Simulated assay, not measured.
Amino acid sequence: MDTDLVIAAIADPSRRRILDALRLRDGQSVGELTEALAPLGRHAVLKHVGVLESAGLIVSQKQGRVRRCHLNAVPIVQLAERWIDDFGARASAGLLALKSDLEKEKHHDR
């Protein structure tokens, strides 16, 4: 894994939106991602997909004329493991769960 490539790839908000879209529904076509990232055009989305592929964050597969993109979370997990030990990961997971619960309560009270 090239850490610099992964960090540079996820630094861009549009590329993070692509990763988020694939996290919600993996295997989307470039056309579907273009719709999700409007107002970005197809060429811009293809460029971002290329950067994400170079970083190993997505894998695309052609099916006829359609190019399907699949999320590969391994490089992100490797980054996390590089800087977070097991204790820190468990503590962070607990804090994130608490944050999520509090946000749900706050949203529910509105």
Rank of each mutant, 00 (worst) to 15 (best):
V6K: 07
S100Y: 04
V77P: 03
S14K: 05
I84A: 09
V51D: 09
V45S: 00
S54W: 00
H107A: 13
A80L: 05
G94Q: 04
A36W: 12
V6C: 07
T34W: 08
D101Q: 09
P75H: 10
I18A: 01
I10A: 05
K62M: 10
L40M: 02
E35V: 13
G94C: 07
V30D: 01
K99E: 09
S60I: 05
R67H: 04
G56D: 14
G50K: 07
P13W: 12
D2Y: 02
R68L: 07
A44F: 06
W83N: 04
D2W: 02
V51Y: 08
R23D: 15
L5T: 08
K47G: 08
A44M: 06
E53P: 00
R68Y: 04
F87R: 15
Q78N: 11
D101T: 13
R90V: 15
G27Q: 06
A89C: 13
E35G: 12
V59S: 08
L5I: 08
S92R: 08
V30S: 01
M1G: 10
V59G: 03
A55V: 09
A91W: 09
V51M: 09
A8T: 11
A21D: 03
V45T: 00
E53I: 12
P75M: 11
S92W: 08
Q78A: 14
L71W: 07
H107C: 06
I76G: 02
D20P: 03
A91P: 04
D26F: 05
D85Y: 00
D26I: 06
V49K: 00
S54N: 00
P13G: 06
L22G: 00
R17C: 11
H70V: 13
L52C: 11
R82K: 11
L98S: 12
L52S: 10
H108I: 12
H48T: 02
E103D: 03
E35T: 13
M1T: 14
L5D: 06
L96R: 12
H43L: 10
L24G: 15
E105G: 06
L95A: 01
P13N: 07
E53F: 05
G56N: 11
S92H: 10
E105H: 13
A93C: 12
F87G: 12
W83I: 12
A8D: 10
A21P: 06
